[in-house]
Every structure is written in C-alpha cells, then in structure tokens.
C-alpha cells in the first residue's frame, strides 16, 4: 500500500491557525479535532487500516507557516506487522519562523518479524519551535521485536541540530545489551526546540532517563522503560 498525507497550517490575521490543506489516504487519515489554547489547530491521525504492513510506503508532510501552531496526535498506537518486504513511514516537516509544531503521536509497536524504517526530517527556520515525541515499543507483551529503525533528522536555521537513530531487532547487533537498551522494552524520546531556551545543565531523571541539552537551541529527553 502507498499512501500520502499532508497538512498545511497557516496563521490568519487574528493569530488563529487555519488548516489550508488537509489530505490523507488510508491508512494515514488526518482529522482536525480541536484547537489549542494558543489558537493552534489539533489534528488526530485516525487509523484507517491495520499496519503499516511490510511493503507499505507511507509519506506524511507537515507545513507550519509563520506564526501558526499545529499539534498532531494519533488516536491509537501504530502497530507494525510483517508483510511483503520493508514498511516505510517518512515524515517531513517544515516549520517557519514563529511557527510551532507539536508532534505527539502514540507509540509505535514493532511486532515479531516486522521490518520497518521510520524517518522524520524536520527543517526549522530560525525562531521556529518544535516538540517532537517518538516512542518505540519492542514487541507486544512477551514478544521479541522484528527489525525497526527510527531516525530523526532536525535542522535549525539550516544547520544540523539533531541526528538520531534507534535500531532494535535481530539485525541490530547488541541492541538489547548493556550499551544500547540494557534489556529495556521501550524507548521514549522528546525533542524540544525553542530559541528562548536558557542554557541549562543536563538533568538525570532516573537510572535510565535524562534531559540532554543539545549543542544548539534544544534539549532531548531520553527514557528507557521496562515493558509492562
């Protein structure tokens, strides 16, 4: 299955965010579900089908204009199943000066035997803001995951800010051992990019969780969780 979805958000003269284009195809179906307190738009991805399945090629583009605010969520976890080949989900986003993007989907669950590659490419203009959450769960209850690789590539003002890739599953040597996940069943990451962030020290939140100030204007919170 091939599918493409698109959201274009712009600010109107009153400062409220208008969605000037929202398009989707099964299984990527964006629906406006409400508004944020800041006048921004809230969009949920509603599940249009199971998957992604191996062989699916999904692309999703987000465009946040000057002064606009967009929050994207999903109604349920994304469960990646095996199929015919590799499933791919490529998300691209452009955030203009003064624009804000909140990407807060439910977790991605990599089931046994899946082969999945997720890539997120985010281009933030000087003065743009982003909150970007990725959660990867290694298999359903009691299940070893297939191969899943999630990459996040973020540029700010044209310069690389974060290049980060997680890989789990049988093709990723040592992924569950002591250097990478240490037996944890899930990884969560939250990137916050904000030009007004003050310089800060890193903070240790627990034995497997820390807030990491980046070299550029942002911070990355990484947390590993034992599977419930």
């Amino acid at each position: 299955m091939r599918a493409h979805a698109l959201i274009v958000a712009e600010a109107d003269p009153a400062g409220r965010t208008r969605l000037v284009d929202v398009r989707g195809e099964v299984p990527l179906l964006p629906r406006r579900t409400g508004s944020r307190a800041d006048g921004g738009a809230v969009v949920h991805l509603v599940g249009g089908a199971a998957g992604p399945l191996g062989g699916d090629e999904l692309t999703f583009h987000l465009e946040v204009g000057e002064g606009a605010s967009l929050e994207v969520r999903s109604v349920a976890a994304t469960i990646v199943y095996p199929g015919n080949g590799t499933s791919r989900l490529a998300v691209t986003a452009n955030v203009a000066t003064g624009g804000t993007l909140h990407w807060l989907p439910e977790p991605l669950i990599a089931t046994a035997g899946c082969v999945h590659i997720g890539t997120s490419t985010v281009d933030i203009a000087d003065g743009g803001r982003v909150r970007w959450r990725d959660e990867l769960v290694c298999g359903r209850h009691g299940e070893d995951p297939g191969d899943a690789r999630l990459g996040l590539s973020v540029r700010y003002g044209g310069k690389p800010l974060l290049e980060h890739e997680f890989a789990v599953g049988p093709s990723a040597p040592g992924w569950s051992a002591a250097a990478v996940l240490g037996g944890a069943g899930a990884i969560g990451s939250l990137l916050e990019v904000d030009p007004d962030l003050k310089p800060e020290d890193p903070r240790v939140l627990g034995p497997a969780s820390a807030v990491l100030p980046l070299a550029g204007p942002g911070r990355l919170t990484l947390s590993l969780l034992q599977q419930a």
Partner: peptide, 10 residues
C-alpha cells in the same frame, strides 16, 4: 550514519 545507543547517552 547517526546510530545511537540511548543508554550510553543517558
């Protein structure tokens, strides 16, 4: 490449 080891970072 950008392969990361979350535990090494944390």
């Amino acid at each position: 490449p950008a392969a990361s080891a979350p535990l090494l970072d944390i």
